[in-house]
Amino acid sequence: MSELTKLPRAARAFVSFVALLRANGFAIAPEQTTAFLAAIGLLGPRAPEDIRKAGLATLAPPPERRATYDRLFRIHFLGGEELRDDESEDDEVVRLQEEGRGDDEPPLADQANESGAMAVRAEALAERRLMPGGTDDALRRLAREAERRLPRRRGHRRMRARRGPWADLRRTLREAARNDGEVMRLGRLKRRERPRKMLLLIDVSGSMKARSEDNLRLAHTLVQAAPNIEVFTFGTRLTRVTRALRLKRREQALAAVAHLVSDWDGGTRIGDALQAFLAVPRFSSYARGAAVAILSDGLERGDLAALRDAVAKLSRRAWHLSWLTPLAAGPGFVPQTEALIAVSRFVDDMVDGGSSAAVVAHVLSLGQKGRAA
């Protein structure tokens, strides 16, 4: 059960509005959320304008972002239907979708990117049916080798070892007591190894249409094979799909993902989506010390400065940051697009992401990059 569903039904819309603000870069402390809910209770609001003013008083959006606050308020509480004639919906807003809230979104796109041949900026909401497909050799290899080849880290607990930096005095003294007080061998300890966190950020925009389904099948196999895996999709929105991918049967998991994600085959705003990810503390914590893989062609249509800043921050949080793009299919790949050139100095690897076999090979190789570091 998610944290949102544990709340009283009447409070969920207000708490999810705060999450939406955080996802779009508003700094809001937990105490402000509590004050916002208390203000709603005191006002007993009779109109949406009362709620908007309560948010202005307690959540304190900066004056220069007041217009964005108002747009997000209308999107969340009014469905975006009450924009003034001289305004259009803010293209800079990347909406956050929590799992379990996909049914609140419009089901069909007004404009669909049928071919997926080019990257666009505009948002297009669409449903998509994901087929389970067969289990190819690459996915079978991932399921078979993930446990022993995925990256690991040294834990804080210690375990017995033939060789190690610490003396196991308890075991040494116990054995000495059985040998009339004579120490025959000094026991040693070393730190346990634990699976390292992994984070997959999967591009589902129109330009990645040919790879989206295969990447999600791979993500399902990875989630089933190892713990500590988090998966998000992004295009013009950021959607956490980890819980859906934990369903054991692939057809059920992919059907749940298809229901959750509403920005299939739409615009490409990678920087805004990553900024939204970093703006939510709970989400950004998934990247800390993790092996992070971004599966995207990097055909960005948004602000390059936002993309560069987001990837730089993600790189500082991550243990290892990989960018897997179908454009890197050949040997000696050199980034050519503006977005990939902008982020290349912040990523540890920029490698081929054009096939499941290539992605699996790279993911399994991560365990050798500073194993147990």
Results as ranks from 00 to 15, higher is better:
Ser2Phe: 01
Leu4Ala: 02
Pro8Tyr: 01
Ala11Cys: 05
Arg22Leu: 09
Ala23Thr: 00
Ile28Gln: 12
Pro30Trp: 02
Pro30Ile: 02
Glu31Cys: 03
Phe36Tyr: 13
Phe36Trp: 11
Leu37Gln: 10
Leu37Glu: 07
Ile40Trp: 02
Leu43Gly: 06
Gly44Cys: 06
Gly44Arg: 15
Asp50Trp: 10
Gly55Cys: 09
Ala60Val: 06
Pro61Ser: 04
Pro62Thr: 04
Glu64His: 13
Phe73Asn: 03
Phe73Val: 05
Arg74Met: 06
His76Trp: 15
Leu78His: 07
Glu81Ala: 13
Glu81His: 12
Asp85Pro: 05
Ser88Trp: 08
Asp90Pro: 03
Val93Phe: 11
Glu99Ile: 00
Asp103Cys: 03
Asp103Gly: 08
Glu105Trp: 15
Pro107Cys: 05
Asp110Trp: 09
Ala112Arg: 15
Ala119Lys: 07
Val120Ser: 12
Ala124Met: 10
Ala126Arg: 14
Glu127Arg: 15
Ala138Leu: 10
Leu139Lys: 11
Arg140Leu: 13
Arg141Val: 08
Leu142Met: 14
Leu142Cys: 06
Glu145Lys: 09
Glu145His: 12
Arg154Leu: 14
Arg157His: 10
Arg158Phe: 09
Met159Phe: 01
Arg160His: 12
Gly164Trp: 09
Pro165Ala: 09
Trp166Asp: 08
Ala167Gly: 00
Asp168Val: 04
Asp168Asn: 15
Asp168Cys: 10
Leu169Thr: 12
Arg170Pro: 00
Arg174Cys: 01
Glu175Trp: 01
Ala177Ile: 01
Arg178Phe: 01
Met184Thr: 04
Met184Asn: 10
Lys190Ile: 06
Lys190Cys: 06
Arg191Glu: 06
Arg192Leu: 07
Glu193Leu: 11
Arg194Met: 11
Pro195Ile: 03
Lys197Tyr: 00
Leu201Gln: 10
Asp203Val: 10
Ser205Val: 04
Gly206Ser: 03
Lys209Arg: 15
Arg211Gly: 00
Leu222Phe: 05
Ile229Phe: 03
Glu230Leu: 02
Phe232Ile: 04
Phe234Asp: 09
Thr239Leu: 07
Thr239Tyr: 04
Leu245Lys: 03
Leu247Gln: 14
Glu251Phe: 08
Gln252Ser: 12
Ala253Cys: 08
Ala258Asp: 08
Ser262His: 10
Asp263Met: 06
Trp264Ile: 02
Asp265Pro: 02
Thr268His: 05
Arg269Val: 02
Asp272Pro: 01
Ala273Trp: 01
Ala287Val: 04
Arg288Thr: 03
Val292Leu: 14
Leu295Gly: 05
Ser296Val: 04
Gly298Cys: 07
Arg301Lys: 15
Arg301Asn: 11
Leu304His: 11
Leu304Ala: 08
Leu307His: 05
Leu307Val: 06
Asp309Leu: 11
Ser315Glu: 02
Arg316Lys: 14
Ala318Gly: 10
Ala318Pro: 03
Trp319Gln: 11
Leu324Lys: 11
Leu327Ala: 14
Gly330Gln: 13
Pro331Asn: 09
Pro335Lys: 04
Glu338Pro: 09
Ala339Thr: 04
Leu340Asn: 14
Leu340Asp: 10
Leu340Pro: 07
Ile341Lys: 15
Ile341Glu: 14
Ala342Met: 04
Ala342Glu: 12
Ser344Glu: 15
Asp348Lys: 13
Gly353Ser: 13
Gly354Met: 05
Val359Glu: 08
Val360Pro: 07
Ala361Gln: 14
Val363Thr: 05
Leu364Trp: 03
Ser365Leu: 11
Gln368Lys: 14
Lys369Pro: 00
Ala372Thr: 11
Ala373Gly: 02
